[in-house]
């Protein structure tokens, strides 16, 4: 029981408790409070129990937004993860090329989200945008304000352009951390380039790729600024993702109760998925029979 002798150690943890309380717990409790009440105005509120949760879970538009969200995040991960790893593998290992490629890769990451939206909004416009007008002049009708597919393509391009560098940088860091002797050993074993990737590089990158996957999943699952700037969730509801729908509900229609219930469900979904991802990635590829 020696461990408990130094009770003063708890004081060192207090600041963290305070910060977490103000940044996370207190706002979350406010939302929980909203989610169980019907609010008509200041001082006018009725306790409604789990009614908003039931209504939200049955909301067809929420279901649509959720599936849209899954499709979007799934596509983002499917493209960005392999692409990021490929870029990392192709990056130079020494010389001036290293700093050059690192800086070039980091550029998109430095641009604010709403600016990214504006850049691509203009870039893909059929009348004045470089990309849009070239595509249209080639005879392919491309207009993200009219066609849901074009809106999705534009969003994916934006997302991949913006965030693949993050995956590439993380993967590159993972690759650089592999000691040179591993490659030597592989050469002496006569292992092919693919075997070297599969049995040395990939397992050694597991840690950073787990982080990249979790970050990219969470971020893409919470996407808001890009579709908001591009089409505001349209055309129709084709790019109305969960967060866009949530903001429409809370700010547009001022339905605080349903929006709060929605937020909590949203939060729990993200939490549950991250937990699943983490567990799966911890165990995948361990003790496999090659």
């Amino acid at each position: 029981m020696e461990k408990w002798d130094n009770n003063k150690a708890w004081f060192l943890v207090l600041p963290v408790f305070a910060i977490v309380a103000f940044s996370a717990v207190i706002p979350l409790m406010t939302v929980v409070n909203y989610s169980v009440q019907d609010i008509f105005g200041p001082g006018q509120r009725v306790f409604v129990g789990a009614e908003w949760f039931k209504a939200t879970l049955a909301d067809r538009r929420l279901h649509e937004a959720l599936w849209r969200q899954f499709l979007f995040s799934g596509l983002v991960l499917l493209i960005e993860m392999p692409l990021g790893v490929m870029i990392a593998l192709a990056m130079p290992k020494r010389g001036w090329g290293v700093s050059f490629s690192l800086v070039t890769l980091a550029l998109p990451l430095l641009i604010p989200w709403n600016v990214i939206g504006t850049i691509w909004l203009i870039f893909t416009r059929p009348d004045i945008g470089l990309f849009g007008s070239i595509i249209n002049s080639m005879g392919i009708a491309f207009d993200h304000t009219a066609s849901p597919l074009d809106a999705w393509i534009t969003l994916m391009l934006m997302e991949v352009w913006h965030w693949t560098p993050l995956v590439a940088l993380l993967a590159y860091a993972g690759l650089r951390a592999i000691p040179e002797v591993y490659y030597q050993a592989a050469k002496i074993d006569g292992a092919s380039a693919w075997a070297t990737f599969r049995y040395i590089q990939l397992p050694k990158m597991r840690g950073v790729l787990t982080i990249a996957l979790l970050l990219r999943f969470m971020d893409s699952f919470l996407i808001y600024a890009e579709p908001f700037v591009l089409t505001g969730g349209g055309p129709g509801n084709s790019t109305t993702f969960l967060s866009i729908y949530l903001v429409k509900l809370a700010v547009g229609q001022f339905d605080l109760g349903p929006a709060a219930a929605f937020s909590i469900i949203y939060f729990l979904i993200v939490l549950a998925l991250c937990f699943v991802f983490y567990q799966v990635l911890q165990n995948v590829g361990r003790g496999e029979k090659a």
Binding site: P179, V181, Y182, Q184, A185, I188, D189, G190, A191, Y199, I200, L202, P203, K204, G285, R286, G287, E288, K289, A290
Partner: peptide
């Protein structure tokens, strides 16, 4: 070759490691 560092294939079992060559 055997190195200072302990070099084995990280995701393969001991059996698979020894069997790899």
């Amino acid at each position: 070759m055997v190195y200072q560092q302990f070099i084995n294939y990280p995701s393969l079992s001991i059996y698979e490691n020894i069997a790899s060559p």
